[in-house]
């Protein structure tokens, strides 16, 4: 005979809720309608630990938060397989901040347990100015070489203006391009050439990919944005183009 199942006692401490701290009462408004999880491609992708055959989805994660099981959400893969696309939050009839809640769950993950390279890349960025640690000298030589290539291919007179004071436009760069797909930088360069744009790129802190946003690291996120603005101010450039 199987033992009779006893209902688990749930202790809900709304006042000290960490994820709900964004909007303490909002998760509690959930009607459990399932609009969020019904329209989410991540539904069913992450098995719930200790519950055979049960998978995470947006509705269950929000309900877990309501029931005080924040830590279970933080420890699960759910907030990381969720791509923070915001479709659930956009559609929620009760205005629950689902996307922000799941990002908050990322923030609560211990930094050395952030999956993949996004935390390490963030630290690398703070230290060396880009996620992949490309040295300034390599970067400048690459821009010079590629600029010369483009000049020969199609654009006589072209070069990459670095640290040009008073330019009209300053551009950030996705470090994956100088690192692995350098020719892809030429698409914008051709456009700038054709438009005769007065543009520039900074020799330092030029990274456009903000992994602090994704790893849930607010101070790093802000620091990177601050640096981009600082570059524009230092070079007296009015407009920032952020091609991410």
């Amino acid at each position: 005979m199987a033992e009779e199942a006893k209902p688990m006692e749930i202790h809900i401490d709304r006042k000290n809720r960490k994820i709900g701290g964004i909007a303490p009462e909002l998760a509690d408004r959930c009607f459990t309608c399932g609009t969020c999880s019904g329209g989410c491609p991540a539904t069913g992708l992450v098995p719930m630990e200790g519950a055979e055959g049960v998978t995470w989805d947006a509705r269950k994660a929000i309900r877990a938060i309501v029931f005080g099981m924040e830590q279970e959400v933080v420890d699960s893969k759910w907030p990381w397989v969720c791509t923070l696309c915001g479709r659930c939050e956009y559609a929620c009839p009760m205005g629950i901040k689902l996307m922000r809640s799941f990002r908050a769950a990322r923030t609560l993950r211990e930094r050395d347990k952030v999956p993949g390279p996004i935390h390490k890349g963030t630290m690398m960025n703070l230290e060396r100015g880009n996620n992949l640690g490309i040295p300034k000298e390599d970067f400048l030589y690459l821009l010079a070489d590629l600029g010369k290539e483009l000049e020969e291919e199609c654009c006589p007179g072209f070069y990459v203006p670095v640290d040009k004071e008073g330019a009209n436009l300053i551009v950030t760069i996705n470090s994956k391009e100088p690192f692995g797909e350098p020719d892809d930088m030429k698409f914008w360069w051709k456009i700038f050439y054709a438009a005769k744009e007065d543009w520039t790129v900074s020799s330092v802190n030029w990274e456009g990919v903000n992994w602090g946003l994704f790893s849930g690291d607010d101070p790093a996120w802000k620091e990177q944005v601050r640096r981009i603005i600082e570059n524009a101010r230092r070079l007296k450039v009015k407009t920032i183009l952020y091609p991410e």
Binding site: A42, L45, V46, K77, W80, V81, C82, T83, L84, C85, P115, G116, P117, I118, G121, W211, L213, F214, S215
Partner: peptide
């Protein structure tokens, strides 16, 4: 999205 390209959860 949300950094998933760089995360180790390729299958998902």
């Amino acid at each position: 999205g949300g950094g998933a390209w760089a995360m180790p959860y390729d299958e998902e």
